[in-house]
Design a protein around this nucleic acid. Structure first.
Lengths: 186, 186
DNA sequence: ATAAAAACATACAGATCAGTCTGTATGCCA
DNA sequence: TGGCATACAGACTGATCTGTATGTTTTTAT
């Protein structure tokens, strides 16, 4: 990708992630990315298109990062545990301000909007990926359990954004119950 | 409360709940509540103060509503189940667009802001209320389990906002696992 | 009935919003 | 060296933002 275009995308990702989508103006993105305004509008014809691009890229990055974390473990259950570890590390990052897809869904209520669709697709991918892991671990109701685990992960994300200092403890508690749940299904 | 003031509060609650806080302007609140702009600023000296008032009132209303639902049941576990039922009914409402406190936390990242504080207090109350119910039901680790249940409830809320048509199914799945978790602790 | 209080409509200030336009400078390639 | 694409800075448009000012009408209480 063009170096200027990438610079805009990175600046927008950081600003949107922290402040939300409506609260961030194009001018501040232009300023942060050290780019002329016309250059911005050449690469991204509208703010909405930029938001879609940011979410699309974020989805790609998260898939890569989570898959890399999973691939380091061998058994299905330790792979699921790796996801919780990944989230714990994410929560501890200084630039953590919640999930960009949840934020997008909260800020754009109109159904059928592409911004929501991209967000939904990310969650659907997460759900399928977890379901596959559970299936590999011989969990009978892997589909439903994957839904529940994703609910727990999103609940953890919201809570860690609200009570940042307690994120580590919350992940520990949640994983203990999820671990018991997995064991009880065998 | 003054009838005009209440009208403003109700209109603001509906608009903020659906569209978020930054996306809603004072003019649209004034229009929806059929009030003059000066009347608005007499009762609420700033938009930020209005948001705080909306969240404070919402907290009060939710506590009353959830407590009323709990009081209809007798045993501790059916009381916890009543909370899940309450959420399921909430998700099915046509004006459901997610949790106003989660939305506020996503849109106002600066720590120490009163808007965040009110949101945190609501979640702390929920946690304590659930913990008390579990303690009454002789759950040993009632404090930690309450945290986990609140995580599940917030995860359900986020998911139901994203996939509205699947809310009922998600609540059913989540309650089944929570029910097992409670039984396993005895 | 009359005076005080509240709410009215509307215009305005100053800032910021998304997006456009102009004209200039820089780098690359032939 | 000449031609061209890209990016530059910054002014500008029209709309919208929060909040204020002004003068009139309606409600309320004595």
């Amino acid at each position: 990708m063009n170096v200027k275009k990438k610079s805009i995308l990175d600046a927008a990702t950081a600003l949107f992630s922290r402040n939300g989508y409506h609260a961030v103006g194009v001018d501040s993105i232009v300023a942060k990315s050290n780019v002329a305004k016309m250059t911005f509008y050449k690469h991204y014809p509208s703010k909405e298109f930029l938001i879609e691009s940011v979410l699309f890229q974020r989805d790609q990055d998260l898939r890569d990062s989570i898959c890399a974390a999973i691939d380091k473990r061998r058994t299905p259950k330790t792979k699921v545990k790796a996801i919780f570890d990944w989230y714990e590390e994410w929560f501890a990052a200084p630039d953590f301000h919640g999930c960009m897809f949840i934020k997008a869904t909260e800020e754009f209520p109109d159904i059928g909007v592409k911004i929501r669709e991209i967000s939904q697709n990310h969650k659907i991918w997460m759900e399928g990926m977890i379901s596959d892991l559970l299936k590999e671990g011989d969990i009978k109701s892997h589909t439903e359990m994957a839904i529940h685990i994703l609910i727990v992960l999103d609940g953890l994300t919201v809570r860690s954004n609200m009570f940042k200092s307690e994120a580590k403890n919350a992940v520990r508690i949640a994983w203990r119950y999820v671990n018991n749940m997995i064991d009880a299904d065998h």
